[in-house]
Design a protein around this nucleic acid. Structure first.
Lengths: 157, 157
DNA sequence: TTGCTGAGTATAGAAAAGTAAACTTAGGTG
DNA sequence: CACCTAAGTTTACTTTTCTATACTCAGCAA
């Protein structure tokens, strides 16, 4: 029997976020929402993702409050549902910007990235940065992780 | 035959980043590296992840240059490998901070998060933000995505 | 009333992930 | 020398996820 204690990371915020958006296709669906898609068929065509998974992921995103359904009506057709992002969904933008940025840096084609992100109005290039509450830009090496209020240890086995 | 053209997102930087870190366990392994783990057994114990998957994920992260192996020596034991993060790996920090932050906001225990991130030295809380090159803080709604140099359309089917 | 369309559901097979335990390897110890 | 340990590999099996394709459904139109 081992008397060593280990951190219990079952309440880790990273793990919990991944439970919601960590499955295949989920983040790519959100990407398409940001790029302007809203209909089932839009997602299917651009992503090439299986319909049953697409339906399952959209259902999950709606249940989690990341997307909501509204309806649209094409002339000569009946009303159909479309998917629109919520403020809770918009709060995932920094994480996805971080992924985008890493891919731009290390995995882009020789001629550059497929999409560019700009500050509407000012037009300058936009990226995800780490800052502290006092407004300092923070290098990744200068982040210190310390136990928070819900920190727990595993019981010894 | 459909003559409609769609965006070809096969060279999307988000998708390409997810090819590297989008599998189950990968980001959690990186989390443990940031929290101080470096040995095979550390990851196995804290994550509770199957050894064969852990070995596969570590191999992938080393191949991608996100981790490198060094050796350590415990007194009375032979030299064994350990895993250390590279600058390329540190560049994933903004993305993971974004996930952490979303989980802290929407999925934390009532008493708060399990871990806190602070600016070493100044001690203030740290988070991921979106900024433009001119230094303005940018709201997610004010990001504009436009085709970049490697933008492509799919051929009609 | 028959067909068309977008948005799904159903189902079956393939691939990946999870689980558990045995086996391997290479140096250090008694 | 046999034994111990950490770091894997291997194997066998179960479960879950993924993929592909067929099918359903609800209105609109001819």
């Amino acid at each position: 029997m081992d008397t060593r204690l280990d951190r219990d990371m079952s309440n880790c915020s990273i793990a919990r976020t991944l439970e919601v958006v960590g499955e295949k296709w989920t983040i790519l669906i959100l990407r398409e929402v940001w790029y302007g898609s809203s209909r089932f068929g839009d997602f299917e065509r651009v992503l090439g993702c299986p319909r049953n998974l697409l339906a399952a992921r959209l259902r999950m995103l709606v249940e989690e409050g990341i997307l909501v359904t509204e309806t649209y009506k094409e002339p000569g057709s009946r009303r159909r549902p479309k998917y629109v992002i919520t403020p809770k969904g918009m709060d995932l933008v920094p994480a996805v910007m971080g992924l985008l940025q890493w891919g731009d840096r290390y995995r882009a084609d020789p001629e550059g990235p497929a999409m560019l992100t700009r500050h509407r109005g000012c037009g300058a290039h936009v990226d995800a940065q780490i800052r502290c509450e006092r407004g300092h830009a923070v290098q990744a090496e200068d982040i210190e992780s310390v136990p928070g209020p819900a920190f727990r240890m595993k019981a010894a086995e």
